[in-house]
Each structure stands twice: as structure tokens, then as C-alpha cells.
């Protein structure tokens, strides 16, 4: 046992300490101005296309196709939206189909991802890490590689041209990332809370649904929104697995509608785009903050 008391204190370089006072005061500088200009430019680049969508959607057909485009619409009209829902285009059918399949896919995928994500988070089984890696790996597989065999599979199961076929496709596509997202949210729940519930006599499922799930509502919603967004964006599955117009979703439906002779109906196209975007953008803003957490958890999985 020995103890040293006086450690030699390194001498303070005098003078330098005084020079730094007041340095942190806000002051316009060249660097700062450049940053502000660059951020502003990026803002314009980000917002301009969205403004352009809105502005064109509100223009008359004649103005929208004008060869020298007008930044502000001369006359604001709702004709394009009218045409979408009242015209020959089965837009509302596509919309309903998209909403229906994406919502159900989100619900099913969240349920399955919750179970798998909880298992990955709490581990304790010998195959846990193997299973979680398998699930992670499927996320990297290119959809299109197995779309052919999947087409044949659904053909034999008589699931082509059905909501169920689409929902199965969407769900599968979403489970890997969803499970890892949920794992990230579950990892944040202290184990002591679950152990309390075990001491209180609850079973594993009881703990999951009475304690863990109520505490993970933001995570559940975020994962749900994520799956919903993915399904809503999916073009490949409905394009290949659905052929009848009455079952078609928005992406292939719109693609088909605004091709050929309607290719230049820019006003209608932008109006449809606006309505197609709204559910996603609203959902994204609602969960924006936990989406960051969820994405990082899902993305940083396996590292």
C-alpha cells in the first residue's frame, strides 16, 4: 500500500487561455455563409419537384402542356382531380386496392416481425443468431430473381390476380427488415421490466403482449409505416402477379394509364401523383422521429 500525493502539475501555457475567450459568440463568417447558401440550394432542389407537382396538378390541361412552362399557374383549377375520380380512369379502384393490400400486409408483417424480433432481441436459443442471420440475408436477395418461380408458385396455388397473393408477396418482402427494426426497438426495453413480469408470474407470451408490446407502440407503428411504404411502392409484384384491372394497385395502374395516348396528360399525372404521395408523406411525418431510430436499428443489424 503506497500513495503518491503531489503529482507534478504540468505548467499551464499562459496567454493562450486568455486569447480564446468570447470565441463561441455567433458571428457571420465566410464559411458559415457558404454553408447557408449550400443548404438553401439543397432545399430548393428538394422542394422544387414537389412544388412543381402541386402547381402542375392545379393547372389546366392546356397550361400544363405549354411548351414554355409557367412557374405559377395562371388559373387554378380542380379539373385534374375531378377527372381522376369521375373520369374513365379506374383511379379510385387502384387507390382502394393499394390501401387495402398495403394495410393488411403492414398488419400481418408487424405481427410476424414482432414475434421474430422479440426472439432475436432476447436470444437464449442456440439457433437464434443463425435464424436472425438467415432473415437478414433474405433482405439482400433481388426480388426479380425469384419473381419467375414465385409467379409459377402462385399460379399453381391459384393466387394470381388475388389480394392474398399480393399480400403474401408484400409481407415476405417486408419481414426481414421489419424483424430487425422491431429487434432494435425491443433492445431498448430494459430487461428488468420483463423480469418483474416473470416474477409476477406471467408467461413469455403474456409478457410480450401485456408488457413489451404496450411499451413498443411507437416501434410497432414505425415498422407498420415502413411496411406500408414498401408495399405502396412495390411495382414489380402487382405488375407480374396481377393482370386484371379491377385488382390492380396504383404503381402499375398509373404506369399503364399514363402511357401511350395519355402520356402527355401531365396535369392528370401530377394530380394522381399528388394523391398517391399524400398517405405516405403524412404517415412518414407522423413517425418521423422513431423512423430514424427504426431505420438505424434495422440498418445497423448484424454489425
Amino acid at each position: 500500500m503506497s500513495l503518491t500525493v503531489d503529482k507534478p502539475v504540468p505548467e499551464q501555457p499562459a496567454g493562450r487561455a486568455a486569447a480564446g475567450t468570447g470565441r463561441r459568440r455567433w458571428r457571420p463568417s465566410v464559411g458559415r455563409s457558404i454553408v447557408i447558401v449550400l443548404v438553401g440550394l439543397f432545399g430548393v432542389w428538394t422542394l422544387w419537384p414537389m412544388y412543381w407537382m402541386l402547381s402542375t396538378a392545379l393547372k389546366s390541361a392546356k397550361e400544363a402542356t405549354n411548351l414554355s412552362p409557367t412557374v405559377w399557374p395562371h388559373t387554378i383549377t380542380g379539373a385534374n382531380f375531378h377527372e381522376l375520380f369521375g373520369g374513365t380512369l379506374p383511379f379510385s379502384t387502384y387507390l382502394v386496392n393499394s390501401v387495402l393490400t398495403s394495410l393488411i400486409a403492414a398488419a400481418v408483417a408487424v405481427l410476424i416481425s414482432t414475434l421474430a424480433g422479440y426472439s432475436f432481441s432476447r436470444g437464449g436459443y442456440r439457433l437464434t443468431s443463425a435464424a436472425s442471420l438467415v432473415v437478414l440475408a433474405t433482405q439482400m436477395l433481388p426480388l426479380v430473381v425469384f419473381i419467375g418461380p414465385l409467379y409459377l408458385l402462385l399460379l399453381r396455388a391459384h393466387l394470381l390476380n388475388t389480394y392474398l397473393g399480393l399480400i403474401i408477396g408484400y409481407t415476405t418482402f417486408a419481414i426481414p427488415f421489419g424483424a430487425w427494426m422491431m429487434k432494435g426497438f425491443f433492445d431498448a426495453i430494459p430487461r428488468e421490466i420483463e423480469e418483474s413480469a416473470r416474477v409476477d408470474g406471467y408467461s413469455r407470451l403474456g409478457i410480450l403482449f401485456r408488457v413489451v408490446v404496450p411499451l413498443s407502440v411507437p416501434g410497432l407503428v414505425t415498422t407498420g409505416v415502413f411496411v406500408f411504404m414498401n408495399s405502396w411502392n412495390n411495382l414489380l409484384y402487382p405488375l407480374t402477379l396481377v393482370s386484371s384491372n379491377s385488382r390492380q394497385t396504383l404503381p402499375p395502374g398509373l404506369l399503364q394509364s399514363f402511357s401511350g395516348t395519355f402520356k402527355t396528360d401531365w396535369g392528370g399525372m401530377m394530380a394522381a401523383s399528388l394523391i398517391t404521395s399524400l398517405p405516405l408523406v403524412i404517415a412518414f411525418f407522423l413517425v418521423q422521429r422513431s423512423m430514424v431510430r427504426g431505420l438505424t436499428a434495422g440498418a445497423l443489424a448484424g454489425t
Binding site: N233, L250, P251, L254, L280
Partner: peptide, 9 residues
């Protein structure tokens, strides 16, 4: 926001 805009859009 662009991240949330549908790809088709």
C-alpha cells in the same frame, strides 16, 4: 420528405 415520396411518383 423525398424519401417518403412513392417511387412511382
Amino acid at each position: 420528405t423525398p424519401w417518403a415520396v412513392p417511387v412511382i411518383v
